[in-house]
Design a binder for these strands. Structure first.
Lengths: 173, 173
DNA sequence: CCGGCGATGACACCAGGTGTCTTCGCTCAA
DNA sequence: TTGAGCGAAGACACCTGGTGTCATCGCCGG
């Protein structure tokens, strides 16, 4: 993160990252499959958190609500980290290869949420759609959060995103 | 495509692709920025088609309907190619780096549709949501089409996808 | 017939990524 | 205490994607 922020993602070499960590280039690739992957360590844990929350939601909850609550909670956990998350976000959006990686992580998250919904007994096709919509709302909410000047409440942003989506889809002007 | 199908994406080298085309490795990179990009030549044109269709839709049409009609039309244009598209799809889904590239192309498409909707006077945030939902429906519809044993009508699939989404979102059980 | 221009050849070079063997440090049992 | 065993790291060669650079060739208009 230090190196990337100082000189930009492309101008930092893996050998330099390894050196700063007191290791050899080869050792870097024993910990991360990719140069990109070093910026996505947390994503597996984040995904697990969201999935667990969806599964643990009371059966009285609507599937939509369960998904949105899980994503809101997970997102709040992220945004609580504050500045480091902002920093990471700036780096990721600066390079296309990183945005690609982020997109595929979100795709994996979508698949995982989809799966969690099916475990709740939601019909297959419905589950897929809900997962897609939920993750899309999460993504834009997160982007909005990271672009905002003032610190904002993540849960409020993502709720707003969903409401607007519902309106647009179901009550077209 | 021949080489990739014969031996798999990873085991084909750029030098070999160039050789089969009677060119030098360096010349390949004068035509494509990437090894991946050679599988995404059509995507710019596809995006242009969809955007133009959204813009050209009569003002009497609902934004949702305009988007879905444009995507259905564009998708039908794709699926009309038949087997080559299936072949390409098999290759793309076989390698993570290719799926990543595909995702970012879809992201670009989403942004373009978003923009086109705003030009129609749709409110900004609504436009973004509609574009996301539309492209998501397109993606799953296309996937369903490419996995189907029998040739199917693309427009019907994508319509079905949207209907189910509306139901899931607006009339939760 | 010539000057210029775009496309390609030729070639060196860098960085990401991998295979392989060795070395080091720790743990645990005899 | 010692030594076998094992995982993590070092060392190093090697491949491939990707770029910079310069020479070359064919074409086209004047």
């Amino acid at each position: 993160m230090e190196l990337f922020t100082e000189r930009g993602y492309d101008d930092v070499t893996v050998a330099e990252i390894a050196e700063r960590a007191g290791l050899q280039k080869r050792s870097f690739f024993r910990h991360y499959t990719d140069k990109r992957e070093v910026l996505f360590t947390g994503s597996a844990e984040f995904q697990r958190t969201v999935v667990d929350t969806v599964r643990a939601a009371p059966t009285s909850m609507t599937p939509v609500d369960a998904v949105m609550a899980a994503l809101a909670q997970g997102g709040t956990g992220l945004t609580d980290w504050g500045e480091p998350v902002h920093q990471r976000q700036r780096i990721v959006s600066s390079a296309q290869e990183l945005r690609e990686r982020e997109l595929i992580k979100m795709d994996a998250l979508t698949a995982a949420v989809d799966d969690a919904l099916r475990h709740r007994g939601v019909q297959d096709i419905t589950a897929t759609r809900l997962a897609q919509v939920g993750v899309a709302a999460f993504t834009t909410a997160f982007q909005q959060w990271s672009e905002a000047a003032e610190p904002q409440d993540f849960a409020a942003i993502i709720d707003d995103a969903l409401t607007r989506l519902r309106t647009a889809l179901c009550e077209p002007q």
